[in-house]
Nucleic acid binder design. Structure first.
Lengths: 192, 192, 192, 192
DNA sequence: ATTTAACCGAGACGGTACGTCCCGTCTTTAC
DNA sequence: GTAAAGACGGGACGTACCGTCTCGGTTAAAT
């Protein structure tokens, strides 16, 4: 990583600075704040520079999402325990990480730039992946898998997206119990 | 004590003209198009007049929602049949009526005007009401009711909101079957 | 064809109410405040009514000027005394009455409505009339009369119009002395 | 400690273009035309840019006045001749240059922005300066000086301001004769 | 007493200007 | 080659007036 030319200067990594501030902005002011103008005001980085790196607010959003990728899924155990673990992890991310803000931002961005839809689909897919993995590993057939994932995850996302309330973790665990009991009657798991 | 002069009230049917166009705009261009400017361009109604009637885009949205109220709930039968009916009705509304667009618009509007959240909560509540009614009539306890409604409705809303695909009607019916079988083992209803 | 209607004129004293308020407005806020809107706010008289009576702000101004006509000139005496009296009267009007405000208003109004110029010329003429009368009575020839009136009156108007300071009464009297001494060397009048 | 980047300063001659057009506008349409909107229509320069340079019409007016400064006073000779020269110069400026329009504009501007008064006082002062200089050089005491300047200049300004007629040059010269004869009886100058 | 028209109030409507803000592009300069 | 500074055109925004219009209520005069 040799930088040509410019010998002096602290060479602050502009992208890091801006993206960090962008994340703060997204969480504090919402998706509409991811503007070149706004980022300039917050970071001091010149407006021209911001435009050069990310020509559109959607690009900033995409960069943000790429920067904070989904952490690897839990190893594995039996069906019920793994589902509970995945629920806990998703609830944690909905609480601590900007997953909710990301989802809202992805909808808001699509209002101005329809091409964002693809990014949104990918992001939702990433959120669902752990659950699909667990169920597929347990040998659940595709249709049942779809239904189960939908019944478990959708309510959590809806809480964050439409009702502005923390993810109903215990309700999600109850639904997991129901699902697990139906798909794998042998295991009579207890809620976490 | 009647004061002289002409009583209040808009003489013309400006509101009708604008709201009709607003609905078209919302469906064709999304929530960001519900601007006074845009409505003026589309309807020919003066920008001042649009502002006079609805000072903010959120007001237009609210008026639109009030104009298209939830149709009355179905009469009643047994649990499974009523749930299936409610699912069908919701899927129809998601397909024919701008429920999906409304939901997206309500999120977009909240980005600029946080006071829209209340409107959004009310709207989602109205969507859930039929299901709650059916389950309460059948004597299902509150907690189970919450879980059931969440498991049934959330996936449908999420399809419209995040994945831009038509409501997965058959999956919803399968989930209704599961739920109904668990809550009311007597009925062994088949999917419609 | 005798109609049994009500063929009378304006019954109420709306005009009085509005014009009184208009005068106050002119003095307190300047010529730009003589708006139908503003008069409505101040008087409570409906905007429509104001428009009905005076279609344009210039009309209000004209009505105001007609309402406050120049009081009759002083009877007469010798040249110097009469000139001093006229100066005093003009200074009083510049101080107490809205002559200064009228002049400014007449210039401001002309910016929006060039037809006001005629009104302005008439008004200035009325202000000069007493001086011309006095000098003509004293037998001063036309050219000298013009010069004398200009030298005496113009500085007073300029103070009010351009320099926003009270009329320099004593200076005016000094100029009158100079003029009178030159035009009528017999009279060695003392300043008032 | 030179910071990187391009230093300030408008690259193009936008200001020249706009101010030239502004002068034309002032003379052809009056003070009320010195609007950002109007300047944009006339010059093609964007409205934003006009606002960026002169946030208020009064600023445009001030810039115009600064652009056309008073030319240097005449060298000097005896009292009467210098006064006649100053009168001629002022009459020329009232005829050729927009002094009359400036004065009207300064009054109109004050109607919307009282802070313009200061600018107006300064401008009138500049107009009077040559006369004061001449008289002071000739040793005329302060009070007489004030009277003389007022008697000579005020009629000229009033013609331009209130009566919309060309400056009465010959009358001004007659008044100068009278004044000079009184202040400096040695010189029995004839009108130029 | 009834008619009749002048007067007035309330306000909807289209239109225009205002001043502010943001956006995206560009050029020029400095490192 | 990258960053900073900022001028510029363009456009939307929300507000404020303006002038016109219609509608409805009141009232004073003339029959």
């Amino acid at each position: 990583m040799t930088r040509p030319g410019r010998p002096a200067g602290p060479t602050t990594d502009t992208e890091t600075v801006v993206l960090t501030a962008a994340l703060d902005l997204l969480l504090s002011e919402g998706a509409a704040a991811l503007t070149a103008q706004r980022l300039h005001q917050v970071t001091g980085v010149s407006r021209s520079t911001v435009y050069r790196h990310w020509p559109t607010p959607a690009a900033v959003l995409a960069a943000l999402i790429d920067v904070a990728p989904t952490p690897p899924a839990p190893p594995s155990g039996d069906l019920a325990r793994d589902l509970h673990a995945a629920v806990d992890q998703l609830c944690d991310r909905l609480r601590d990480r900007p997953v909710g803000a990301f989802l809202q931002a992805l909808i808001v961005a699509a209002a101005a730039d329809p091409s964002t839809a693809q990014l949104r689909h990918r992001y939702v897919g990433d959120l669902l992946t752990p659950f699909h993995t667990v169920l597929r590993t347990a040998g659940v057939p595709a249709t049942d898998r779809e239904d189960a994932v939908a019944a478990i995850v959708s309510p959590l996302l809806l809480d964050a997206l439409l009702l502005d309330r923390p993810a109903a973790r215990t309700r999600a665990h109850r639904i997991v119990d129901t699902v697990a009991r139906r798909l794998d009657p042998a295991s009579e798991a207890e809620p976490a």
